[in-house]
Computed example of a mutant assay.
Amino acid sequence: MTEIAPVHGPELITYADELAALLVDTVNGGSSVGFLAPLERDEAAAWWRERAGAVDAGHLQVWIARDAERVTGTIGLVRAALPNARHRAEVTKLMVRPSARGRGLGRSLLDAVERSAAETGVTLLVLDTESGSPAERLYRSAGWTECGSIPEYAGDPAGVLKPTTLYYKPLGPARATPAR
């Protein structure tokens, strides 16, 4: 049984080593999530620990999926900071351990983020992913809309520049923010 739950800053630090193992497996397995291979576990753990402050401040939310033994997946949601953009957020770092793929865990993590975002008044989500990656199938099947591609946007884990595809998903009717 896999449980998906949000984590707070202190919990993120507690799970940093397990999340580091997931990040290392993901990057060294060829998935483009912002890091170059080979990624060392200490570097990955430090990166996760550095996120704890943003989680505590409310700028970042992180969910983890755990089975009885370990962290099997994660996803993040970055809140827009500017006053005219508080209706939107960016989905980041959706990762599923290679041994747990193909069982709907990625979709469950995405659903958890979408529900939480909608509950807190977010009406638009955005994300980017490497063009042609398996993640694109997930996003399309979950109702995300492709809105364009940027050539040579980011390096894959080997450092080769690849195109990135941008996606968005409206969560409800847009609401204007009152003028102050």
Rank of each mutant, 00 (worst) to 15 (best):
P6M: 08
V7F: 10
T14R: 15
T14I: 11
D17P: 05
L19D: 09
A20L: 11
A20H: 09
L23V: 13
G29F: 04
V33G: 09
F35E: 03
L36N: 13
W48S: 11
G53D: 13
G53S: 09
D56M: 11
W63R: 04
I64E: 02
R66K: 14
E69I: 10
R70I: 14
G73D: 07
I75P: 06
I75M: 12
G76Y: 02
A81R: 14
E90H: 10
K93D: 06
K93N: 08
V96K: 01
R103H: 15
D111G: 06
V113E: 05
E114A: 12
T120N: 11
T120R: 14
G121Y: 04
G121P: 04
V122L: 03
L124W: 12
V126D: 13
E130W: 01
S141N: 04
G143F: 01
P151H: 01
G155E: 04
D156Q: 02
G159Q: 02
V160C: 01
V160F: 00
P163E: 03
P163R: 00
T164R: 00
Y167V: 02
K169T: 00
P170A: 06
P170M: 01
L171F: 06
R175D: 05
P178I: 00
P178K: 00
A179R: 09
R180D: 15
